[in-house]
Amino acid sequence: MIERFVTRKAAVAALALSCAAGWGPAVTSPAAAAPFKLEGEPKAAMVLFGPKNDGGWSQAFEESRVRTEQALGIKIPVVENIKESATAIRPAVELFIKRGYNIIIGTAFGYSDTFKELAEKYPKVAFVNGSGTTNGPNLESFYGRSYEPHYLCGMAAAAVSKEGKLGFVAANPFGVVNWTVNAYELGARQINPKATTTAIYTGAWNDPVKERAAAEALAGQGIDVIGQHVDTPTAQIVAQEKGIFGTGHHRDMKEFAPKATVCSLVWFWDRYLIPTIRKIQAGTWEPGPYGAFVSIKDGGPDIACCGPAVPKEAVAKIMSERQAIIDGKKIYAGPLTDREGKERVPAGGVLSDGDLWKMDWFVPGVVTQK
């Protein structure tokens, strides 16, 4: 998975460079002033980065594809295992276009540049790309505010922890991972103000061996709930083996660890895709100049919660907080300091999207290890 690690590392660099001008996914070109007009009936197709049964990122898109088909009453063919190189992406997409498909759904950062080139070459085709960084008159990249579900899962974690000692298996110390670790701790402290979160960074997005080592190390420290922002269910499997609890990422990890998993971040991309395709069909779609950064309210990330071990009163509080987020609550609202005591968000303020994408600090209660 070295290729995926490199491209995601490049993604964070691209996001950091774009923060000054927008929320994150790159400021490549503003959207057209007029809505995009699709010619003919909408025919959508999906290009998957990995296998549709990978248990994580690609499978979440596959499941969203099926739900989108059912909601719209259309068929969305899919091609899988299209890696992040122009020589793989271009022929797959152009074959769909040749067959009359006029809405192309991408699923990887590494598609960004090629999708930009294809969108310019085929201006009458609509392109959307999950975790991409390029945008244009007929192209919109989209990602989710994943820190919102992790805040809620942190609450569930603290609710089942005996002493409030939580752990977190994280991939790389980038903004998109750091904001999940911080949100996890902020959520946990809504239940237990003394809760701590010890995070171990594996240095890879998908490495079951390193994930197992990290999870076992956390369990060995007396931690009794393990969260994650990595691609495989290994951390949850280890939690179940150790007789402790865990929270998952990408999909509902109860599939792999039914006794251990009390909450998971789940990508519901259909909540973005369904209204977007409807807008494209209606001729009202206006791609955002900086892409779409979707919340629980707007579609993308949500939670699968809660496992039977979570007390009913805690479940009620979690769901109340979820509704508050939908109603406009901001996770990173002031006053907020980092663990060194430096003020990061003043009272009455909210952390900007640009500062979210370049987050390189941790809230009090987070302990980081390599």
Rank of each mutant, 00 (worst) to 15 (best):
V367Y: 09
T232W: 00
P289C: 01
N81S: 15
A33T: 09
S85D: 07
P42N: 13
H229I: 01
S18D: 15
G164W: 02
G220S: 12
P123C: 10
A31N: 13
E340Q: 11
P335H: 11
R65C: 10
I223A: 10
K259S: 07
I76C: 11
V366R: 00
W23Q: 13
G354V: 02
V262Q: 10
L118D: 12
T180M: 09
T7W: 11
S141Q: 11
D353C: 00
I325R: 03
P301M: 11
D252S: 06
I280V: 14
P77I: 00
D54P: 07
A347E: 15
I191L: 09
A158R: 11
M155N: 11
A257F: 05
P77F: 01
D302I: 03
D54C: 04
V225T: 12
K9S: 03
V366N: 00
E343L: 13
E255Q: 14
G175F: 11
G283E: 09
V262H: 06
V79L: 02
P208M: 06
G246P: 07
R90S: 12
A156Q: 09
A333H: 09
E163C: 01
S320G: 14
K124C: 04
R99K: 14
G130S: 14
D353F: 04
R344Q: 14
K358Y: 02
Y143H: 13
F293Q: 01
G248W: 03
G243S: 08
F256Q: 12
K254W: 02
A171C: 12
K254M: 02
T114P: 06
A215D: 02
D207F: 04
L72P: 08
F49C: 10
G365N: 08
T107E: 10
A16I: 09
R278K: 15
G334V: 03
L17I: 07
A282D: 15
C306N: 09
S18A: 15
V230H: 02
P137E: 11
E321F: 11
G246S: 15
T337F: 09
G334L: 02
P233W: 06
S58V: 04
A214F: 12
I103E: 14
V266W: 06
S64M: 05
L15M: 14
G132Y: 04
P149R: 00
L72K: 08
A119W: 09
T180Y: 00
W23C: 12
A282T: 06
P208F: 04
W23M: 10
G50I: 00
G248C: 04
P258Y: 07
A215C: 09
A159K: 03
N53K: 10
